[in-house]
Nucleic acid binder design. Sequence first.
RNA 1: GGGACGGUUCCCGAGUGGCCAAAGGGGGCAGACUGUAAAUCUGUUGGCGCAGCCUUCGGUGGUUCGAAUCCACCCCGUCCCA
Length: 405
Amino acid sequence: MSAFDILKERGFIEQLTHEDEIKELLEKEKITFYIGFDPTADSLHVGHFIALMAMAHMQREGHRPIALIGGGTAMIGDPSGKTDMRKMLTKEDIQKNSEALKNQMQRFIDFSDNKAIMVNNADWLWNLNYIDFLRDVGVHFSVNRMLTAECFKLRMEKGLSFLEFNYMLMQGYDFLELNKRYGCVMELGGNDQWSNIIAGVDLIRRKEGKPAYGLTFKLLTNSEGKKMGKTEKGALWLDAEKTSPFEFYQYWRNVNDADVEKCLALLTFLPMDEVRRLGSLKDKEINEAKKILAFEVTKLVHGEEEALKAEQAAKALFESGGDLSNAPSSEISTELLGQKVLDVLIEAKVIPSKSEGRRLIQQGGLYINNEKITDMDFVIDESLFKDGEMLVRKGKKTFHRIIIK
RNA sequence: GGGACGGUUCCCGAGUGGCCAAAGGGGGCAGACUGUAAAUCUGUUGGCGCAGCCUUCGGUGGUUCGAAUCCACCCCGUCCCA
């Protein structure tokens, strides 16, 4: 099976610039391709993970990935599909973020022996000469056509600054540069990158008279078409500090029945026969598939050890047995003993405010050591702690161990 | 630069002197039902010492017993003109 067939079968592909040619190319040749990641935050999130999986599949089939860190493009900010301009990042932040992304990426892609390349477009974008750039690259872009691009649609009403308008040229130029430096012939990206990818493909074809190709992935959406990978706290990060392995595991453990198969195909390396079998399980049975999904994805992102711990914690909390010690926890000082629940829970960051805590208790959603708390003035004393530990449950699914320091 | 319109609580959006912590919807949270799912129904959704008080309606000052609502200046956005 070629990389093309694999990506297709697993449901990665959304759009292709030249379907037949790309199919043939990936079957017959080992190519160099690239995916860009802008360092707009200090961690990658699930959206990037799809791209990394695609990259890994391609690499397994012998193609050479270039992971492009957008230290230069992050200075501009991609307006594609966004309703508002993002706040501008400082050079320092961008550099810090670039380092973070670089480290994370090495966990997923094998960069040894030149099997993959990592570059930063800051290398060529930061010192670009404006006039030269306009004459070399700018001529090839039609403003009329750009204005009709899908990626700017949302901005034609809300406003688009000239700064952001240039993003497309920068990304197109990246592709050209990678084509010249490394013989990169294909750019992959999320479907929101379609316009930007075409910009590069066209630029190479026009300026170099060489073939270049583009392919976009489906955005990870659930069966209702909403973006996945969002939690109450924001994105689902790949950094264990920002989203704990347990939280990460639980996210996948709780996906909709209808999305299980799609997630298994996209986010794990399980063979498709197995994916289809698991995805077709019905009713309660599908919980087994969700456990496998959660375990496999967590394993890829955080390693087997963390995945096992998360699995154990989930088992301890929702079933029985299993090791509780890996469930989320926080420490409080002994001075808080004798204080009321709300004060203690605030300190442990289980609730953000007392009003919210009161509401929780009024609505019967707070449990301590599996006993429902109904009294606002309930006092937390030492007798509640077994081995220095107390289990707080908020609603059905949020567990929190509170440990005395 | 000139003119028109706008900036409201997590988001969208109503509110044009007191009855406004501010309608409605979305989202979130909790409860019931379940399978740690979905759908549905119910409650709730600024903070605190919670029948009371405090802070909020772009910013700063002002008018008034009282302002999200009126006035002045400023900042930001969209549109039309240059």
